[in-house]
């Protein structure tokens, strides 16, 4: 019951967050230099054409009027019409969301699959060669830009070995798995480096904790100590980090989806910014804000499951 109340409270707190996001993004978009009418009609358009476009889009209305329209329409679920796509913003986002969602989930899964076991190996062999090798490799991964990792993977695994496609997205589950594996791996290599470092440090800290020493003194089997006491406690800070990483991952899709030619929300955001497509930028930002808020909520809930001290009230 306390848990449900907590969730409801958190959901209620999201409302002012979203209103604030709407105000900020509305103003930021309009602070961008450059005229959306030029972005739509091109450099060759006449001044009269540009004036007509501005009038049609309501860009000549006072800012407050424009914001009120955006705010009230959004509350009614209407994010407006995309200027460049000439269709409703909601439909474009709904069309692209599954691709980006799949990419993000696959990236998180791969990050955990890579970082988890290696963090354990490194922590349990602290200061020895496996620890050094793992840390060095991840340091390299961390120091390389995401787009560069992507290009390396594309060049060798896709263009030369032809194990994966160079770009695009699949139609069904297995198609998506095949097409989105490399972009997800690109993101995962970077994210897993952060998670591995954090998890390794947490494991080492927990291994030295008194309750673990006590468990050893009691003669509990090593597997039980690692599973019940070490992993559970070490994961608490890592879960927080994972939540933050997913937030970063959303912005990372801008680069990854462009390099891998994935038609997802990140690439769409980039196109919308260049085209000064105000309704689409606003809709996408709001969508990202909602997704990140949900991830943060889930992170908190999961943390409370792991740590009784963080029971929800």
């Amino acid at each position: 019951m306390a848990g449900l109340q907590y969730v409801l409270k958190r959901l209620a707190l999201m409302v002012p967050t979203f209103v604030l996001v709407m105000i900020i993004i509305f103003l930021l978009v309009r602070l961008l230099p450059g005229d959306p009418a030029i972005a739509i009609a091109g450099d060759k358009a006449s001044d009269a054409d540009l004036a007509a476009i501005r009038e049609k889009l309501g860009l000549n209305d006072p800012l407050l009027v424009q914001f009120w329209l955006f705010f009230t329409n959004t509350l009614q679920g209407d994010l407006g019409r995309s200027i460049m796509m000439r269709t409703s913003v909601s439909s474009v986002i709904i069309e692209r969301l599954p691709t980006t969602g799949f990419l993000a989930l696959l990236a998180v899964t791969l990050s955990l699959l890579i970082a988890g076991p290696l963090a354990f190996v490194a922590a349990l062999n602290r200061g020895k060669w496996p620890d050094t090798v793992i840390r060095t490799l991840f340091q390299v991964g961390l120091s390389m830009p995401v787009f560069y990792i992507g290009l390396i993977l594309l060049t060798f695994l896709a263009a030369q070995l032809r194990w994966f496609p160079v770009g695009g997205s699949g139609d069904d589950f297995f198609g998506q798995l095949y097409y989105l594996f490399l972009p997800s791996m690109t993101v995962a290599l970077y994210t897993s480096a952060i998670i591995m470092r954090n998890l390794r440090a947490s494991i080492i800290e927990v291994l030295d904790a008194e309750y673990v020493q006590f468990a050893r003194a009691k003669g509990l089997p090593n597997r039980l100590i690692l599973g019940r006491h070490v992993l559970r406690n070490a994961l608490i800070s890592t879960i927080t980090l994972l939540g933050l990483s997913i937030g970063n991952l959303m912005s990372g899709t801008l680069v990854t989806e462009t390099v891998f030619a994935v038609p997802g929300l990140g690439r769409l955001m980039l196109e919308a910014i260049f085209a000064r497509d105000y309704p689409l930028i606003q809709g996408l930002t709001l969508t990202f804000a909602i997704l990140v808020s949900i991830v943060f909520l889930l992170t908190d809930l999961f943390q409370s499951l792991l740590d009784p001290r963080m029971r929800l009230t």
Partner: peptide, 14 residues
């Protein structure tokens, strides 16, 4: 539609 030059060329090479 592949905006990135390098990816577009890799597509051809692959």
């Amino acid at each position: 539609i592949i905006p990135d030059d390098a990816t577009r060329i890799l597509k051809l090479q692959a």
